[in-house]
Structures are given as structure tokens and as C-alpha cells.
């Protein structure tokens, strides 16, 4: 997207569609086939993305189904008051942002490292098989990840505790220790996404101009210097674009992963509750649509502002990297 929009902005506009209604109509007729080709997708987004948007009004009402979204009593900011006052909104924001930062920093680091090392591997079969195995976690559902986690970590039969008791230790009550979960969740996230994410960097390394490596060799560069002065700088644009995109989504979490790892275990909420799990739980176990909508709206608006801010900053620094 970044690239796509950037490029289009740089390119001269061929036609303006908005100047005169007449030319607009003519333009529609002339492009009817291409427009028709876009129609299914447009309809899709109208029906499933735009049409529910007015429903965000629920955040300001005491919603009931009889009166509907716009007939329900208006309560102003009541639904937000407690979320803010209790610090819940802050906790959710903090958790969401910190998890995302950890995912971004550690994720990119690992992905780059794996990509560089994969590039060093010479054996074709080793490369192929290890790649296949590393992608595997990306293919399974988060439901299965929840199963895996429970198998590893539960108190009575978990693999980790089985190992501990076999070596004479006391089993650990992992599902009651809130402090352990950021690490566990981050590990699972890395486990699931690193193999897949490294392909992008790997592809970028493959695309580095060979003459650079040759020049480095002629200069007598060591392997470390080759990484430091050739590979890493070449990965910088990729990294920045990925980073920007991750920053844009910093208010979103990996909902399925969190939900299937933690579920309704209130003992862990302090360190594991992110905006999306909270929004889901409010509906699913508290039948509370108004607070849920309020948190969702906050997420959307705050996320929107963050993207705009990130984009504005990037544009100041280097216009080419801006999203739009």
C-alpha cells in the first residue's frame, strides 16, 4: 500500500474525475467495464464495513433493541466515564501498545536474523526443509495454539510441569501467574510468525545486487562486515516500511492468539487484556454492548490518529516513505 499510494502520487494524474458532472458521467460510461469489475468489492465494503459504521453511535446511548440504534436513550459520554476513570482504558491501551512494540522489535529482529542465516546456509535440502518447518506454525489455527499452550503449561499434566516434577521440582502454577504471561504470549507470537515473516527479508536479501557483495569481498570484508555494511543497509527500506505498517496497526492485537491462550481467566487480565479481547469479552460474557462499542470506537479513533501522526512524521522525514 505504502508503495502503491506513494507511486501514484508521484505519477502525474491523467484525468480529473471531479471537475464537471458532465465529464464525470461520460467517464463513468467510458469506464463502465472496469467499474463493474470493482463493483463486487465495493459492495462488499459498503455492506460489511461502511454500513455498520453509524452503529458506533451505540457508544453514546443506553442501547436497547426495541428502540434500535438511534432510538435508544442518549447518555452522552457516560459509557466512557468509567472506562477512563477506572484506568481500564489506560490499562488496555498500555497492554496493547506494549505487546505490539515487543512484537515489532523482537519480531523484526528475529526475522532479519533468520533471513540472514538462511542466506548463509548452502545445503539446498537443509534450507528447504527448515523453511518448511518454520512456516508450519503460520498454517495452524489459533485454536490449536491454545491447545498447545495448555498442553505445555497446565498444572496437572502439562509438559513443562511434567519435566519439572520428573527432575524433582515442584510444579508451577503457570495459569495463575500473571507476570509470566507477557513472556509466554510473546514467545507464541514469535513462534507463529517468525518463519513466515523471515521470507520477506530473505527475499530482500536475494534481491541485493551481487556487485555489492563482490566489492565487499574485494575489500576483504569479513562475514560480519558483510552483514553490517552490505546486508543490513539494504534491508533498511523494507524494515522502515514494515515498521510503519506495524505502527499503523499498533492499536490492534492478535486477538485470536490472546483469546485462545488466556480466555476468561481473570487472574491474568492485568497483564494480558488487550483492547480486542476486552471488546469481545464484554459482548460475549457480559452482554454489555455499550461499553464494548465505546472501547471499540476509542480504538478506531485513537488508531486513526496514530496512523495520521505517523504518516505526518514520516512525510516530514522522507516523503517517499509516507503512506499517503
Amino acid at each position: 500500500m505504502a508503495a502503491a499510494l506513494t507511486q501514484e502520487r508521484v505519477q502525474p494524474r491523467e484525468t480529473s474525475t471531479t471537475k464537471k458532472p458532465k465529464s464525470l458521467l461520460r467517464s463513468i460510461v467510458r469506464n463502465r467495464v472496469l467499474l463493474l469489475m470493482c463493483l463486487p468489492a465495493i459492495l462488499f465494503f459498503v455492506v460489511f464495513s461502511y454500513a455498520p459504521m453509524p452503529g458506533a453511535w451505540i457508544a453514546f446511548t443506553n442501547f436497547n433493541y426495541r428502540d434500535g440504534i438511534f432510538g435508544s436513550p442518549f447518555v452522552g459520554l457516560r459509557n466512557f466515564e468509567f472506562l477512563i476513570q477506572s484506568g481500564q482504558l489506560w490499562l488496555l491501551t498500555k497492554n496493547t501498545v506494549l505487546y505490539n512494540l515487543a512484537f515489532i522489535v523482537l519480531g523484526n529482529f528475529l526475522q532479519i536474523a533468520i533471513a540472514i542465516m538462511l542466506n548463509e546456509v548452502r545445503s539446498k535440502y537443509f534450507k528447504k526443509i527448515s523453511q518448511a518447518v518454520m512456516f508450519l506454525p503460520y498454517f495452524i489455527s489459533v485454536v490449536l495454539i491454545g491447545v498447545i499452550a495448555f498442553n505445555l503449561l497446565n498444572y496437572d499434566t502439562g509438559y513443562v510441569n511434567a519435566l519439572i516434577t520428573q527432575t524433582g521440582g515442584d510444579p508451577i502454577k503457570i495459569y495463575s501467574i500473571a507476570g509470566a504471561w507477557p513472556i509466554i504470549i510473546i514467545l507464541f507470537q514469535l513462534w507463529q510468525s517468525t518463519g513466515y515473516g523471515s521470507i520477506v527479508y530473505f527475499a530482500a536479501i536475494m534481491g541485493i545486487d551481487n556487485s555489492l557483495f563482490e566489492a565487499a569481498a574485494i575489500d576483504g570484508a569479513s562475514a560480519w562486515q558483510r552483514i553490517r555494511y552490505v546486508i543490513l543497509p539494504s534491508l533498511k527500506p523494507t524494515f522502515i516500511i514494515l515498521l510503519l505498517f506495524s505502527l499503523g496497526g499498533i492499536m490492534n492485537g492478535n486477538f485470536g492468539l490472546f483469546w485462545n491462550l488466556v480466555g476468561n481467566n481473570a487472574a491474568l487480565f492485568q497483564t494480558t487484556d488487550i483492547i480486542e479481547t476486552s471488546v469481545y469479552r464484554m459482548i460475549i460474557s457480559q452482554n454489555n454492548f455499550t461499553s464494548s462499542t465505546a472501547v471499540g470506537l476509542y480504538q478506531s479513533l485513537f488508531g486513526f490518529a496514530l496512523v495520521m501522526l505517523a504518516n505526518w512524521i514520516v512525510r516530514k522525514i522522507n516523503e517517499d516513505y509516507a503512506l499517503f
Partner: peptide, 26 residues
């Protein structure tokens, strides 16, 4: 309950966090 629905919802959120943990001695 028209006037206190948002409050009840908020209280429900608090209780659903604390009561299960108190109940199970966590």
C-alpha cells in the same frame, strides 16, 4: 434502571474480573 445501566455495566465488568479470582482463592 434506565439511568443506572451504564453503571451496572461497569460494575459487571469489575465483578467479572474480581469475583472468579476471589472464588478460586487466586
Amino acid at each position: 434502571k434506565d439511568l443506572i445501566d451504564p453503571t451496572l455495566a461497569a460494575m459487571g465488568g469489575v465483578l467479572s474480573e474480581y469475583i472468579p479470582q476471589l472464588q478460586y482463592g487466586k
